[in-house]
Design a binder for these strands. Sequence first.
RNA 1: GGCGAGGUAGCUCAGAUGGUUAGAGCGUUGGAUUCAUAACCCAAAGGUCACGGGUUCGACUCCCGUCCUCGCUACCA
Length: 684
Amino acid sequence: MRYTITAALLYANGPAHIGHLAGCYIPADIYARYLRAKNHDVLFVSGSDEHGVPITIRAEKEGLTPQQVVDKYHSIIKKSFEEFGISFDIYSRTSKKVHHTTSSDFFTTLNNKKQLLVQKSEQYFDDIRNKFLQDRYIVGECPKCNNPNAFGDQCEKCGSTLSPSELINPRSALSNATPILKETSHWYLPLQEAEKWLKEWILETHQSDWKTNVYGQCKSWLEQGLQARAVTRDLEWGVPVPLADTDGKVLYVWFEAPIGYISATKDYFEEKNEPVDNYKKYWQDENTKLIHFIGKDNIVFHCIIFPTMLKLHGDFILPTNVPANEFLNLEGNKISTSRNWAVWLHEYLVDFPEKQDVLRYVLTANAPEQKDNDFTWKDFQAKNNNELVATLGNFINRAFVLSEKYTDNKVPQLFDLEQIDKDLLQNLQEIPTKIENSIENYRFKEALNFYMELARIGNKYMQDTAPWQLAKDLEKNKNRIDTILHLSLQLVANLAILGEPFLPFTAKKINQLLNIDAQKWEKAGKIDILTPNHSIQKASLLFAKIEDIEIQKQIDKLENSKKQNELENYTPENIKKEINFDDFSKIDIRIGTIKTAEKVAKTKKLLKLSIDIGIETRTVVSGIAEHFLPENIIGQQVCLIANLAPRAMQGIESQGMILMAEDADGKLKFVAPNEIVKNGVTVK
RNA sequence: GGCGAGGUAGCUCAGAUGGUUAGAGCGUUGGAUUCAUAACCCAAAGGUCACGGGUUCGACUCCCGUCCUCGCUACCA
C-alpha cells in the first residue's frame, strides 16, 4: 500500500510548541514510522505556511521584511522537528518557487475549467501608494471611544470590532492618504455547489471511519450551508494571481497553503534529483491513501474546502482520513503564542537535552485524541519517573544487568520451556497485533499503553521466575537461568521494534545495547531476533529520573514569562487631545446604585441594569456580563454618565453609560466613591 | 443564540450494536522481594458513570430537559 501522510503546515510567525507536537506532528510521525516499519510506501510531508497578513504585521513590528520573518521561524521550527525525530521525508515551505508555481497552476486549472466565480466589490484603496488596503492598514478615529488611532478591523483601545467604514477621518497607514473606495475583482470558490457530493462523501461514506469530533464538525458545517469563499485578495505578500491585470492580488492563504502539501511532494523529488512527476503517484493514484494529520482548528479546511478544490481540479485523490486532534492545554490554561504561555520546543531541547523521547512519550500518553487535555509539568515528571524509568527502563536494565552477572554479556541458549515461559510467548505474540490495530485506527494513546504493557509483562516475568534466586545454586539451575534471560533479552529486542514509532531514540539505543541493527516490524512477537552466543553491551540506563527542582524551574519559568508578558504588553494609553473646562462640564456624571441586573438574552457580554440615581431610575445596557454575575453587583454604586444620548442595544434603550476601569489584564472594575454616598450626587 | 465535541475512581483517560459484581495507568494504603534508578511483584481501598425526567424486564450506553467546559458560528461591546 502507498500512503501520503501530511502534517499540518505550521504558520511561520512563531516557534513550535508542545501543542503542535501533541496535536499533529507526533501522531503523524508515529503513523509514518509504523507504516514504514511495515514496509509500506510512505511519503510524509509537511512544511511552513509562510504567507498571509499576520506575517506582514509581525514583520512590521520586528522591523523586518516578511521574508526575513519566515526565514527566521522556518529554520527554528524545522530544526526543532528534526531534533524531535519527526521523520518527515521533507519539511518544505510555501515561499519556495515550486510552491508558487504549483499553487498558481492549480488556480489556473480551476479558472480555465470555469470552476471559479469572479465577483466585483468595492474596497478601500490608497491613491498615493496605489494599493488596496487591508482593514488593518486603515486607521482613524474610533466611533466608540474616540481613540484617534483605531484600526479598520478593531480598536485596540476599547476592543471594539470595527469595519473601516465606521472610522471617523480614516487614513491609510501607509501614506496617510484618505482611502477611497475602488472597485476590485476577486475570484471565489463556489463551495455551495459542492454541498451535495460533500454530504454524500462525508456524512454517508465516512460516518464510521472518521473520528466523531471530525465527523461532527463537518456535519455542523454542511448543515449550516456553505458559501462561496474568496480565493484571492489584495495583498502583496503571497502567491501572485497568475492572470493579466491582477497586480497586487495574491491567492488567499487558505487556498494556497494546503496545496503546499503537493508542492512539498514535488520539492522532495526535486531535491532527490528524481523526476518531479513522481509526485503524481502520491497524489493522483487511486491506490494511494492520503491521510491528513491536523489540529481541530483545521478541520473545515481539510475535510471540506481542500477536498472541494481537489475534486474540482479533477486529477487528485481525496483524503482517506483526517484524524484531527483536539487541543492541549498547559497547566490549566490555553496555550498562547502571543501571551507566551507555551513550552517551546527549541527551549525544551536546551533545558532537557537528550530527552526527546520523554516528551514524545508524555505527549502521546496524554494526547488530546478525544477531548482537550492538560499538560502539567508534574505529570510530565510522574510519567517519566514512574513509567519510563520504573517500568520500561527498569525492565531493560534488569535484563542487561542479569545477563552481565550470569551469562557474561552473551545471549544465552534457550532450553525447555515451562508454562510461565509459554504464557510469556503468548503475550508477546498478541501485543504487536494489538498495537497494530490501535495505530491503524489512530488510537495512539492506546497503542502506547499496549507497548508499556509488554514492559510490565517483562517485569512480572522476571519477578515470577526470579533468576537471582536460582543463581544461588548456579550448577543446578544454569539452563533455567539461560532460558529466562534468553527470553528476557528477546523481549527487550521486541521492545526496540515495537517502540520505534513512539520512542525512536530509545529504540535506537536499545539496538545499540543489543549490538543489532534495527529490525523490521515483521520480527515483532518473535523470539529469534537474537541468536545464542551473540555478544551484547554492558547495562546502561535509558532514562534518568527527573528531580523536583527541574520541574519547579519550568513552572517558575512559565509563571515568570507570563508575568513579564503582562507587564510588557501593558502600556498606558496616550493622553487624549486637550479639552477646555466647558467641554468637561458638559458631562453630567452621577452616582447611582444598581438595583437590578439581568443578562440580556442572546448576548454574551450584555447586562441590563436598572440604576437608581436619586431623581429617577435609569435602564442601562452595559457590556460587563463576562466580568460580573448579575446577582453579585446588586447594591454596587457606580458612576453614570447621565446625559449621554440614549442608544438602543438588542432592542433595549440604554439610558446612559457606567464608568469602568480596565485593568492591564482586561478585567473590568467599577469606578465608585470610596464610601457610600447619596444616589444622584454629582461627580466633578 | 445556533451547531459540534466533551462532562466516568484523587489525577490522566478507556468503556463495539443497552445485559451478570463499571475498567486501565499513575497516585494512596498494606504485604512480599532485592537482579534493578527505594525501582519491581502481589493485594486492597476509592465511582449514586454532571443533574432531573422518560423508554425498557434491564441504561454509563437510547430519548427529552437542565447545568458546566472547549471549539466553530451569529450577534454584541
